[in-house]
Structure formats: structure tokens, C-alpha cells
């Protein structure tokens, strides 16, 4: 059985205001796979995440991005989300006064609507989230608070993964979800992510440090430098990176 490609990025060149950041980036992610993307600050990891999610202000000058066979770059960010692309933000945004439950219910119902499924009412929704919130060991009162407002750094990140658990994306992009997490939070987040792994979906885990990969075991590890992938391998590559540092890999 051949694997279904979820994401196919070919020769992607992109940047902001005449500054090239991605310079010929290639990556294919198939269903059921977890890919880790590593690299130094400024190598273009977060730019890639932003472009995949559809953030404004980036110019794609060359290359293609296909998601489930469709041209991803043609879609508005909300359309991408409805089709199953999920970005766990590096810096989740606070929305004062907007109840977390209400926000997430609206998001889920947009996705359901686009799939032709009936919208969930408040009671059905609460039933659904009850199990998911345990998965991330989040406090119940989080759902009553405003979106990310007054959350600690760790709570914000866990909340992102909680949203991911509820929205069940086909492609989850985790942008440095590990940064700012202590080791306990890291374990909880990783356990959550591992449990969310499904044969028909894929994950792209962007990280600066190897330590996240102790808990989330990737099928592939890619090292990024200067806007493209310079080395790919299995999870051993991450260990090698940890032992010898980026310099050694970039030189080899």
C-alpha cells in the first residue's frame, strides 16, 4: 500500500520585503508520519510554519506547496484550518473577554460546517472536550477563562495542544511548542501529542532542541540551515545533533 502524501513542498523560495528566507525548501510528509524540523535560530523554521498556516506578509517567489493534492498557497488561512491544517503557535495570542469554550466551539463548528457535518451545540461540545482536557492535564476552569488571557507560558502551550486534540487536524504543525516549557509540562504536552497520532494524519514538529524528541519520537528528522534542509535522517540524527552540535553537521 503506497502512503498518502499529506504535504508536498517543492523548491519553495519565500521571504519578506526582498529578504529571501526560504531558498529551495523541499519536504514531503505522508500520512501517519511524524517529522521533526530542527535548526538554528534564523534558519527559516518559523517562516515555514507561518507560510504553511497562511500568515500575511510573506512573498512566495518560487516553488509549490500541495496539501492533500491541492495548492495550499491558494487558500485563505481560515480555509486551510477548515481543511485540517493546524498550527500550534509559538506565541499563542491573548483575546481578552472571549471565552475559551466559545472560541473553540466556534472553531470546531467552522470545520464541521465545511465538512458538511451538523454543528455541535454547547452541551454536545462540552461532552466532547471533557475527555480531551484530561489528556493535557489542564484545569477545567481554563475553559471558562478568556482565550489565553492570564495563562502562564506552559498553560498557553498546553492549550494549543488541547485545541489540536479537539480540532483533530490532518496536518499539525507544532512551532517550537517546547520552548518555555519545564520538563513536567514538556512530558504532558508530548504525551498528548503522541496520543493524537493517527494513521491518516501527520505532524511536523519544529524545534530548536533535541530534548522534545526524547518524548515525541519522530519518524524523520531534518536539519535546516539557510532556508533549506541540509540533512535528513531518522531519529538518530537528532541525537547526533545533540552530541556534536549544528556546526559539525553543517560542515559535513
Amino acid at each position: 500500500m503506497s502512503k498518502q502524501p499529506i504535504l508536498e513542498i517543492e523548491n519553495l523560495h519565500a521571504g519578506v520585503e526582498n529578504k529571501q528566507i526560504l531558498k529551495g525548501f523541499n519536504l514531503t510528509i505522508n500520512a501517519g508520519e511524524v517529522h521533526a524540523l530542527m535548526g538554528l535560530n534564523g534558519s527559516g523554521k518559523s517562516t515555514l510554519a507561518a507560510i504553511l498556516a497562511g500568515r500575511d506578509g510573506y512573498d512566495v517567489t518560487e516553488g509549490t506547496v500541495k496539501y492533500l493534492g491541492k495548492d495550499l498557497l491558494e487558500l485563505d488561512p481560515e480555509e486551510r484550518a477548515r481543511e485540517g491544517v493546524f498550527l500550534a503557535f509559538q506565541y499563542p495570542v491573548e483575546i481578552p473577554g472571549v471565552n475559551s469554550t466559545y472560541f473553540l466551539k466556534a472553531a470546531l463548528n467552522e470545520i464541521r460546517k465545511s465538512k458538511g457535518q451538523p454543528e455541535l451545540d454547547a452541551i454536545e461540545f462540552l461532552e466532547l472536550v471533557k475527555d480531551k482536557i484530561k489528556l493535557l492535564e489542564l484545569k477545567d476552569d481554563l475553559l471558562k477563562r478568556s482565550v489565553n488571557e492570564g495563562f502562564s507560558g506552559g498553560e498557553k502551550k498546553r492549550n494549543e495542544i488541547f485545541q489540536m486534540a479537539v480540532l483533530e487536524p490532518r496536518l499539525a504543525i507544532l512551532d517550537e511548542t517546547d520552548s518555555g516549557l519545564d520538563i513536567d509540562a514538556l512530558k504532558i504536552v508530548s504525551t498528548g501529542v503522541n496520543k493524537l497520532k493517527r494513521p491518516d494524519s501527520a505532524q511536523l514538529v519544529i524545534t530548536h532542541y533535541q530534548r522534545l524528541l526524547n518524548y515525541i519520537v519522530p519518524d524523520f528528522v531534518h536539519v535546516m540551515a539557510d532556508g533549506r534542509i541540509v540533512k535528513s535522517g531518522g531519529k538518530d540524527l537528532a541525537l547526533e545533533l545533540e552530541a556534536n552540535g549544528y556546526e559539525a553537521i553543517l560542515k559535513s
Binding site: P77, E78, A81, R82, F86, F89, P92, I95, F103, E110
Partner: peptide
Amino acid sequence: FYCNARGLS
């Protein structure tokens, strides 16, 4: 953008 990325127009 955060809302967009969660499927909201």
C-alpha cells in the same frame, strides 16, 4: 490571524 488559523473568517 490566530482566529483565522482556527478556521474563523
